[in-house]
Design a protein around this nucleic acid. Structure first.
Lengths: 165, 165
DNA sequence: ATAGGTGCAAATGTTTTGCGGCTTG
DNA sequence: CAAGCCGCAAAACATTTGCACCTAT
């Protein structure tokens, strides 16, 4: 196991240092929370988790930090509908999100074909793609009656719990 | 020309009547503004245009109307970033938007292939697609240096002015 | 007449900010 | 020590709503 020291820098904490950000206590805590998050928390939720580790943190700081990290390219802001922005650490390959309209759960998936398609479209219109976004809103299928299923499912899927609204 | 009577119902106005909505003066004006819009105005802008035709309209009513028409499927709400929701009349075929990150202009385009792809992806993950969204953020290309251009450009593109932010 | 619209202003919910004090590099 | 943070509370926005009149149907 990873001998949990105490002042050990989290993955995102290290990224902050790399970009020359001042590391305060609260920033370190928020960085840790973000590093450990496996879902797409909104600011309120990040605040809750951070405050649980160190109570001298205010929502304002969470907002400021999350904004800063987004500018630095460390975080990405998402909008899955429902008013508040959600955040997730920037990852390497492009991936997209499918939101279960009934439960609010988010399923991530990759699709290289798609990214290429977008670039091609922009190009055809005389533009250079800067960024893009795509979200699928869907409902779980009732269960495959009979038919050939077996190895039906998927590699890519990584369901995560986040039933809030 | 279409003899602009005065109480003549606009396209969206007619749709309201079809669905049994009460046609008040302000609703008629808003419907007309929406019918004539060729861009993707936000509520503030709709209010401006409507108030120019009939000053006894409040923003609250525009908000209420736009919300109602969205529920009735007459309008679609869009989010192109920048805080406020934008609206556009529901059209037949799916179309998507490319936002010029420098000017804010919106270019619409269609892509049947794409819609099918999404449905397939959802299906593969065990879901039934309810709706989806996709936006491209891009920058105009500097001009094709030499190479084969000529018939370079595009059919699909329909650029529209809306440089606001 | 009556269900439903409307204006106005107050309320909401999320995110930003001004400011004096405190911390990091 | 200077530049940059933080907490707090107020402010800023976009959008919604309660209430007391109006008005299409």
């Amino acid at each position: 196991m990873v001998a949990a020291g105490e002042a050990m820098e989290s993955r995102i904490g290290r990224m902050c240092i790399e970009r020359g950000l001042k590391m305060t206590g609260q920033r370190r805590v928020i960085a840790r929370v973000l590093s450990e998050a496996e879902d797409h928390p909104d600011v309120e939720e990040l605040y809750r988790r951070a405050a649980a580790l160190d109570s001298r943190i205010s929502v304002a700081t969470v907002y400021r930090t999350v904004r800063l990290l987004e500018e630095k390219g460390i975080l990405e802001r998402r909008d899955f509908g429902g008013g508040r922005a959600r955040y997730e650490a920037t990852e390497d390959g492009d991936h997209y999100h499918l939101i279960d309209v009934d439960t609010g759960k988010v399923v991530e998936f990759e699709d290289a074909e798609h990214t290429a398609l977008m670039r091609r479209i922009a190009d055809r219109l005389g533009f250079e793609l800067v960024s893009h976004r795509m979200e699928l809103f869907a409902r779980r299928k009732p269960a495959t009656p009979v038919a050939s299923d077996g190895a039906a499912a998927q590699r890519a899927a990584a369901s995560k719990d986040e039933s809030r609204r």
